[in-house]
Design a protein around this nucleic acid. Structure first.
Length: 141
DNA sequence: GCCAACGTTGGC
DNA sequence: GCCAACGTTGGC
């Protein structure tokens, strides 16, 4: 299983909005960046990701699961743009702030630190475990 | 194919 | 709200 990180502005589409979608989840649409799109094309159903609140919040708030592989983004007719569907798995007991991530030398190579603007990012197995630990949340459940 | 101009993202 | 970083566009 691969791990990812999805960024969204909470005022536009936040964690609570995804929770409200239930088990069916929601299209991760609106991505208009090739690298982010390519990351979504690499995803498999069952892959997990972090949900990060950008611009305000600035913290990882929970764990999501990919529930549909990449397909046409329904918000555009342009066939260059695909997206996956994601659903909420569970919130972090303790949100992990960007500040905390930057303060942890083990996370210095995270895309969140290195490629600040990329909206859909890969996360390594090691980073996944460390962030879940910081979030006081057991990732296996 | 280069690179300047432009638009967008996102931390502060 | 500002502005730095960075991706994209388009003229040459």
């Amino acid at each position: 299983m691969a791990y990812w990180l999805f960024k969204s502005e909470p005022e536009v589409f936040g964690w609570d909005d995804l929770i409200a979608k239930g088990d069916a989840g929601e299209e991760w649409d609106g991505v208009r960046n090739y690298q982010a799109r390519n990351n979504m094309r690499s995803m498999a159903v069952g892959d997990r990701g972090f949900f990060y609140h950008s611009r305000s919040g600035l913290e990882i708030v929970g764990i999501v699961e990919v529930c549909a592989a990449a397909h046409q983004d329904s918000t555009t007719d342009d066939d260059r743009w695909d997206c996956v569907d994601v659903r909420a798995v569970k919130p972090f007991a303790q949100p992990v702030t960007l500040k905390a991530i930057k303060a942890d030398p083990r996370l210095a190579e995270m895309s969140l630190v290195k490629s600040m603007r990329l909206s859909v990012q890969p996360v390594t197995d090691a980073e996944w475990a460390i962030v879940c630990e910081l979030g006081a949340t057991d990732p296996s459940v």
